[in-house]
Design a protein around this nucleic acid. Structure first.
Lengths: 210, 210
DNA sequence: GCTAAAATGGACCCGCAAGTCCAATCTGAG
DNA sequence: CTCAGATTGGACTTGCGGGTCCATTTTAGC
């Protein structure tokens, strides 16, 4: 990716952000290279200069860009899950962020349009999920240290469940337009964390840790 | 959709299933109309005869087809959530189904390729989610009737959270290839259902029912 | 200021895949 | 048997959009 000059780097960035913006407004399918060029006042040669891989490489760059935003938008709350009110603040921020975003999930859109099997795409999503889950798990551990969460709970597994709930909630919101499911998932999982102790009462089948 | 003759209806169905199969194997983007024609031994005029809306209408039909499969594949367990072992059986079936399916989620693929905003697409997904959630809620209510689940829990909201966890788990699996998150979400939510009573201990911020 | 490398403009190419058209053949009701 | 409508075959058109190329201008180190 030849971006040696300051000017060049700026142009490259402008293309990425322009593409991201256009995708947010019209979706991936309805975003052609020419659209991006027109919007960013650049020429085709520039685009292919900075993204030799063409459309695919550009989409990947956009995916990275959007993935970073996802976590940034949850800060500073996500990094400070140290009390129940703090968790609640974070919860509200997540709901608000996705409610505002509306039906278009740029990241999911981009991902499915370049195939989830693509190594590059896979790397972007995997890293996002790992970082996200790690922050949540850190929060859980902190609360365990403070004696607010049952120490018997596996922080990583709990964080994984929470993360899955968020993803699913957002996914459903993309179709229905409502954040009901997202909120339900968040609230139920948080309620479970607050629950003092499972106190092994029902001798039913225990969840096998796979 | 002119499918007046028995023969015609058969052809129409053959096209749908052929398209669905090809999409399952190669993804939506890599599925052209000619691919479908070759696979189903049909001609272009037939495809446009039965699907005047062209590619889009065909994809929508495939979406409907796949949506039906989703619930069918969970039966009969999904319709019989009447004991903890039964819930466990269903849980295992879901995990197994998606593990088998692998990285390709035909439905999600189709959906994002015709835009989640499309009225038709939206209808398909919404109906699927509604039916799914209704079955889960029915299961919760049954268990409440049997005194196995805290009657204070809102069955629909609980089902919504469970559904979100599943969707997110599957979504993550599409990128990572692992069912870890799906299992974590299912197990945590089911564990929460088994928990006797929240027994209002922590006076922290209560989840606002929106 | 000189020059090599970087950056830019934009015309051009080209293949693919969606969609059109008409002519030929089959189906089934009366 | 007959005929209208349903079904089928497949050649043809078309436009879009990704990608290539080269000529020109700008940058920045010396």
């Amino acid at each position: 990716m030849p971006a040696t000059t300051r000017k060049g780097a700026a142009t490259r960035q402008r293309i990425i952000e322009g593409a991201a913006a256009h995708i947010r407004e019209h979706g991936v399918a309805a975003t052609t290279l020419d659209d991006v060029l027109a919007r960013t006042s650049t020429s085709k040669s520039q685009l292919f200069h900075y993204f030799p891989g063409g459309r695919e490489e550009l989409l990947l760059a956009v995916a990275r860009f959007e993935a970073d935003r996802v976590l940034e938008d949850q800060q500073p709350q996500l990094g400070d899950l140290t009390s129940w009110p703090a968790w609640q603040l974070w919860r509200d921020k997540v709901v608000d962020r996705y409610r505002r975003q509306g039906r278009l999930c740029p990241l999911n859109g981009v991902m499915s349009h370049l195939g989830n099997g693509t190594p590059g795409a896979q790397a972007v999503v995997t890293e996002l999920m790992n970082r996200w889950q790690a922050e949540l798990a850190a929060g859980v551990r902190h609360m365990q240290g403070a004696g607010e969460i049952d120490p018997a709970l596996d922080p990583d597994r709990t964080a994984a469940a929470l993360l899955a709930g968020i993803q699913g909630g957002v996914l459903i919101q993309m179709s229905t337009g409502h954040t009901t499911h997202l909120e339900a998932a968040l609230d139920l999982t948080l309620a479970h964390l607050r629950t003092p102790t499972p106190s092994t009462t029902s001798p039913s089948t225990a969840p096998t840790p796979a």
